[in-house]
Amino acid sequence: MESYDVSVEGMLFSFLLLLIPVLISYYLGLNLISPTIESAFRMVIQLLFVGVFLTFVFDLNNALLNIAWVLLMIFVASHTVLKNAELKTGKLLPMLTLFMAVTNYAMLLYFNRFIINLNDLFDARYFIPIGGMVLGNSLRANIIGIENFCSEIQRNENRYLFRLSMGAEKTEALIPYLRKSMGVALKPTIANMATIGIVFIPGMMTGQILAGASPLVAIEYQITIMIAIYVATTVNVLLGVLVLVHRGFDEYGMFKKDLLRNV
């Protein structure tokens, strides 16, 4: 199958499309013109940088460099999770980064070794993009999970204190909160799995088909990556909440409100 690169002219036609949201924003007074232009500009710069950098990384294909690049991605993901969940990063970031690193490296090595049977487990062409897909897709769930846990423990503090006063250990008293936040966080990923291929064609599959792969090869990858994403998301959300269980409470078992950004 033949694949077509996007030409400079094609790229310009793509940018031309942005006039539609800009005009809608102008006529409806949405105040979204400058955020749209700024975000599009940032996207181009970031992707240019990543494109050039990944070309260099792929050419070099050095295992240590690949591991370091994925670690940087994990660090940025952990930071993004805490920031979006309105938490201060200081005391939580190192532990969250460590936990997410263990999960994601383990998942990547398992995927490369047992699912696609690679000889070079750290091959940049697989290690980095698959790492990015797993991390990127679990990011939203992680934010929802941690955000839900923090808001529930504040909104329903009495339920937690009641359990402590009934003799519960901290973890025993927090199990209802853990269950609820994991349920809320994982529902979108479960719904994603159930509707994939019918409601939407995922980016990875689309990319492979556009690059000339057969749809059957594309679905093989999509099925396996979707399972990897779901598993990694479950473990990432669990560990994210456990970081809070471990670090988010004082020695009396009270939630540390000073971890919240708005306090």
Partner: peptide, 18 residues
């Protein structure tokens, strides 16, 4: 505190517990 809490039965006025 963790052992002492096991010693006392405390019922608060807020009954929204479950």
């Amino acid at each position: 505190i963790w052992n002492l809490r096991k010693r006392v039965a405390y019922v608060s006025q807020d009954t929204d517990i479950a």
